[in-house]
Simulated scan of single mutants.
Amino acid sequence: MSLTLYTHPMSRGRVARWMLEETGQPYEAVVLDFDGAMKSPDYLSLNPMGKVPTLVHDGRVVTENAAICCYLAETFPGTGLAPRPDERADYYRWMFFAAAPLEQATTSRAMGWEVPADRERMLGFGNYDRTIDALDGWLQAHPFICGDRFTAADVYVGAGVLYGTGFGTIPKRPALMDYAARLTARPAHQAASAKDDALAGASA
């Protein structure tokens, strides 16, 4: 069994590394530079977008962090990171809420794009405030996405919350910050962050 993560320490590859650390499976991390190896023919044959992360598991290629999180959780069921049957609705609902409305809303906020009220229906997230309120409301009532226990959905949703509250695209509301604290206390998150921080420091 081989797992290879193509990544960069200052990229969304940090999310995939965190997920890999949560699985406890051995993996190889291949660090690519943005304008060189990431755009090479060899790498583009794996990921035509020329971006990271890309996960290769025994020759099978998975891109996009939400997909990587779901794939690893299902591939290694003994980790307990996949949803139980009664958790599936919440798990998939919020995993893909983060991949679509939350990602769109926070990216628009970062770019300074304001959506005219009469065009909200054209966009998947519709309205920034409603998007944040929806997630905040859920986390006020649930310590983790699926209730009382951590799953792969918390890696993906949580990464969005950690990034957004850290860089100002998500407000530091109490429920969001409490959730962030629960995530950063996890040994796997700390291990993943330490590895990427060390790589980032070495390349600075």
Rank of each mutant, 00 (worst) to 15 (best):
S108L: 15
E21V: 12
K51M: 07
L183Y: 11
A67W: 05
A175N: 10
G24E: 00
R88S: 14
A180K: 15
E120R: 15
P83N: 06
A134K: 11
P41K: 07
G126T: 06
A29M: 03
D148W: 11
Y71S: 12
M38T: 10
A100K: 07
F97R: 05
V56C: 03
T106S: 10
V62S: 04
V155E: 01
D129N: 07
A192K: 04
P53Y: 06
V15K: 02
V15P: 01
W113I: 15
R119Q: 15
T106L: 03
P171D: 04
L162T: 11
W113F: 15
S11Q: 01
A117I: 09
S108K: 15
Y6M: 03
D90Q: 14
M1V: 12
D197P: 08
N127E: 11
Y156L: 06
L55T: 02
T23Q: 06
P174S: 13
S193D: 13
L3P: 08
G124H: 03
A117R: 14
D178Y: 13
A200T: 01
R119N: 10
A185I: 11
T151D: 06
W138G: 08
L81I: 03
L123W: 08
F34L: 05
A153T: 11
A192C: 06
A200C: 01
Q104N: 12
G166Y: 13
F144N: 06
Q25R: 15
A152Q: 01
A66G: 13
A82F: 07
A204G: 13
A98N: 05
G80R: 02
G160C: 12
Q140F: 13
G59T: 06
L123P: 06
C69A: 12
A16G: 04
G124K: 05
D118C: 14
K39E: 00
M38F: 01
L20M: 05
L139G: 07
T4I: 09
L5A: 05
A141W: 09
F125W: 12
D133A: 15
S45H: 06
A67K: 09
R17P: 04
P9W: 00
I170E: 07
A192V: 04
G80K: 05
P171S: 07
G59E: 05
T23R: 00
A100E: 11
N65H: 08
M111R: 15
Y156D: 02
T4E: 09
G112F: 10
T4Q: 09
I170D: 02
F150A: 00
G147Y: 06
E28W: 03
G160M: 12
D86H: 10
F96V: 10
Y6W: 00
D129E: 15
R93F: 13
R173Y: 07
L44N: 01
A181H: 02
A141C: 14
A194F: 04
T165Q: 12
A134Q: 08
A98Y: 09
E120M: 11
L135S: 04
G158K: 02
T79L: 09
V52P: 00
T106R: 08
P101L: 03
K51G: 02
R17Y: 03
A99S: 14
W18A: 03
T79G: 12
G80W: 05
P9F: 00
V52T: 01
E64C: 07
E74L: 14
K51W: 01
A110Y: 13
D35E: 08
